[in-house]
Amino acid sequence: MRLSLFAAAASLMLAAAPAAFAHAHLKASTPAAGAKVAPSTSALLLTFTEAVQPKFCTVTVLDSMGMHAEQGAPQTVPGHPNELSVKLHLQMAGKYTVDWHALSVDTHKTHGKFSFTVTN
């Protein structure tokens, strides 16, 4: 009887469990996905759900002609190991596609893609 009560309670707790976001998934970005920004935007900031290893992270930003708009390798923001920053040089208006690959400190790789638009 006690065992079945425990099992029922355990099942209920599992059914109502909160989500824990393991692996480095993109939580937010500046510019955000789908945002419209000015050409003066000088950096892209990616915020992940976990701390990342910058030596094994890549971020490419391509304009509609396929030209690279990122400058240099991504770096973690001091004091924020879950944030990656990369410098931008946005030359023309149009759609820019961000393709990121991240390695989290718990040894897992994740990747994703989103775009933003530069308007004059």
């Binding site: 909160p18 824990a20 393991a22 692996h23 998934h25 993109l26 996905a33 961000v98 994703g112």
Partner: peptide, 14 residues
């Protein structure tokens, strides 16, 4: 420990 836990499903953005 190598697998993605199910609770994080659907976190990809973009």
């Amino acid at each position: 420990m190598q697998l993605p836990p199910p609770a994080m499903a659907g976190m990809e953005m973009g």
